[in-house]
């Protein structure tokens, strides 16, 4: 099972913001969402899209506590890892 990547998150964030151009941002993964132009509304939509896309539920405090893309990706991967054994057992 492949892990969720920062690149995938940025693709989703750009879709949420309606950005047509993909610009490579230096050290963007470690910058705060606010400094990347993503407010809590954009972050809430990104969470919703990731949850639907991966079939997982992220902790409710994700919006307030996860400040950077790198931290967001860690939360998603932790959730994927937690739910993975269940999938394997079912298969």
């Amino acid at each position: 099972m492949s892990a969720f990547t920062v690149e995938e998150l940025f693709q989703i964030m750009r879709e949420c913001a309606g950005e047509e151009e993909a610009v490579d941002l230096a050290d963007a993964a470690e910058q705060e969402f606010a400094l990347l132009g993503y407010d809590s509304l954009a972050l809430m939509e990104a969470i919703s899209r990731v949850e639907r896309g991966l079939g997982i539920a992220l902790p409710e405090e994700t919006v307030g506590e996860v400040l950077t893309p790198a931290a967001f990706v860690d939360v998603v991967n932790a959730e994927l890892a937690r739910s993975a054994p269940v999938v394997e057992a079912a298969g």
């Binding site: 309606g18 950005e19 151009e21 610009v23 606010a34 990347l36 132009g37 993503y38």
Partner: peptide
């Protein structure tokens, strides 16, 4: 706040770094 700063960071000119943003007050 920094509401407008956050919005304008989505503009391609700011993304590319040719334009820049400064906020006078905390977020």
């Amino acid at each position: 706040g920094q509401g407008l700063s956050q919005l304008v960071r989505r503009h391609p000119a700011v993304r590319r770094g040719s334009s820049a943003v400064v906020s006078l007050l905390p977020a």
